[in-house]
Design a binder for these strands. Sequence first.
DNA 1: GAGATATGGTACAAGTGCGTTCCGTATTTT
DNA 2: AAAATACGGAACGCACTTGTACCATATCTC
Lengths: 189, 189
Amino acid sequence: MTPQLDARARRSQRALLKAGLELLNTNPEATLSDIAIHAGVGRTTLYRQYETREKLITAIAIDCLETIDEVTAPIEKQAKSALDAIRLLFELAMPLTQEFQFLMNLDQLVEDNPEIIEINEKQKKEMIEVIEYGKKKGEINKSLPTTWVINLIEGLFYIGWLQQKQENFSPQEVAKLAFTSFSKGVSTH
Amino acid sequence: MTPQLDARARRSQRALLKAGLELLNTNPEATLSDIAIHAGVGRTTLYRQYETREKLITAIAIDCLETIDEVTAPIEKQAKSALDAIRLLFELAMPLTQEFQFLMNLDQLVEDNPEIIEINEKQKKEMIEVIEYGKKKGEINKSLPTTWVINLIEGLFYIGWLQQKQENFSPQEVAKLAFTSFSKGVSTH
DNA sequence: GAGATATGGTACAAGTGCGTTCCGTATTTT
DNA sequence: AAAATACGGAACGCACTTGTACCATATCTC
């Protein structure tokens, strides 16, 4: 598929994707120069690998989506129910706060990109299936719109990121809290 | 207190604050020129009212905080319990999605500002009191960290904004969903 | 209505980021 | 070891944004 890349070029790409993810998350106006320095490569090398700022950002976004895909792949086989799948999702993907944050702010960094939209919608469809399966099985409240439940899940990753950043909670602790809040809310029962 | 402002200057300021809120939300890199045009005033007028980009952004943030304060003021008197206060908070403040979004992304627009931090912490302290009162009264699950509950509330405003934007839900519908999810979660009970 | 003041427009200076080109050097590939 | 290729660095042109200065005009205050 992808024509074998020179080892140096591969290293540069990895370093640039990582540096871009980190820097653009903390400062969306980070310069390509900043990113190159942070990646430990020359500015011209950045331009050789990614022709424009936009292409770099798109590449980072796609890399994030792939990472999330890889990490969540085992869910399908392991999950014993719809709720269990969501519990596993929180548990496995909560460490990927950087990736979620980047995707969350993506529309402020670059115009919509068809490739990214496609991958996003594929992931969303999988979520819809899980939620509606859960509704059918009586696990999830049918009076809640499926779109709301999906946004709730996405939002709980944002909340989890806040909690990790502000209070130094571990991804595991946060995943537990997120699943509790998701399934049972905060009331005493 | 504030020395009476010329009627024209007042109009300009209002228009600039509103335009800045709208534009910077959709594009954090919006130009001062863009904002002036969108506000229907000259660029020089913007600079007369707000010396620098940073001061404009700070002024917008403070205006947002004041708006939220005004809208949520009645809660203290009306609320019959801690959970009821949070229900009212969602109901009254959910229409203020623009203001919340702006404050959420504020740290990406400008360095931390002492005045804003002060107001923010005051509002947070009030929230903490409500949550801990709710815990004491047995309304809220004591095993959940108060910081988590507060982040959950903030996050539900973000989720509510997503739902309004993506699915054209009304603030009222969203407020109901947010409170249900907050208090009871999504499980069938 | 007269004076004060805010406004819009233009022009200007300084700074910054983007993207390109060129060249000598270092590292892979074969 | 030789050929291929990716690298870093420096320099350049370009476009754009910020912030300032000036001036004639419109609007407000009293």
